[in-house]
């Protein structure tokens, strides 16, 4: 069995609403492995976004540890966490979230150059290659407003891949797309998950996406209630 790329060890998260403290994620152990498309599913308010943001190092857990490629990163300072995100993570958001001021190609390379310095010719070439592989060669100079939903999401995937991340986190990437665009995006993600050095986690509440999963996780009320890799006893489902 390959080594996990991302591990959560007894990770929990509490939120304080001003009056009371509420636990939204209970002690969770989870590992993501390379070459695997993991789907995290659950109803609204189940804790899947909280889990995703903790895995994405944009939210600190209240308890437990996050281990990325063998390194405990939970207590790293903010700027180091940002660097880990840039080097090891790719994000695909629900609404693509491209920067409207930038062109398609700039939206892709921004993820490589956001910590300053010149963007190398290699990065630019890689961006062009990614966009070409996603059928976006004709859109390089366009602004996001000029793209369709599916095209935007493919640009977002190209952006997520520009740093060749080992962890790709996708937050309901097809929820705002029509059926045809959804299929294209999911096929693309599935193909990306075949890369043996990359783990891919896709958060969704849409059961039609489940067939794409190599591994299916279900979360409810802040607890993982199903893991297809380690099926839980029937009474816990």
């Amino acid at each position: 069995m390959p080594q996990p790329i991302l591990q959560l060890e007894r990770v929990a998260r509490d939120f304080f609403d001003g009056k009371t403290q509420r636990r939204v994620l209970y002690e969770t152990d989870l590992a993501l492995y390379p070459g695997e498309l993991t789907i995290l599913a659950g109803p609204s308010g189940s804790g899947k976004t909280t889990l995703l943001t903790i895995m994405g190092l944009v939210l600190k857990p209240s308890a437990g540890d996050v281990v990325v490629a063998g390194e405990r990163v939970t207590h790293l300072p903010e700027h180091k966490l940002a660097s880990v995100r840039r080097m090891r993570y790719g994000f695909v958001f629900q609404l693509a979230e491209l920067l409207p001021a930038l062109s398609v190609v700039e939206n892709v390379i921004v993820a490589a150059g956001i910590q300053g310095g010149q963007v190398s010719a290699d990065v630019r070439a890689r961006a062009l290659a990614l966009l070409e592989s996603f059928g976006l060669s004709d859109c390089l100079g366009l602004k996001p407003l000029q793209l369709s939903g599916g095209q935007k999401q493919r640009v977002a995937i190209a952006r997520a891949l520009i740093n060749d991340p080992s962890i790709l986190l996708c937050d309901e990437p097809t929820s705002a797309l029509d059926a045809e665009s959804s299929t294209i995006v999911l096929d693309t993600l599935k193909q990306l998950s075949r890369d043996t050095h990359r783990a891919l986690l896709l958060v969704t509440h849409d059961p039609r996406v489940f067939p794409y999963a190599d591994r299916l996780l279900k979360i409810d009320n802040g607890r993982i209630i199903f893991d297809s890799r380690h099926p839980l006893p029937e009474e816990n489902l």
Binding site: E78, R85, M87, E97, V110, A111, Q115, R159
Partner: peptide, 8 residues
């Protein structure tokens, strides 16, 4: 978005 992508 920029912060999530790795901007400090």
């Amino acid at each position: 978005v920029l912060r999530a992508l790795g901007a400090r």
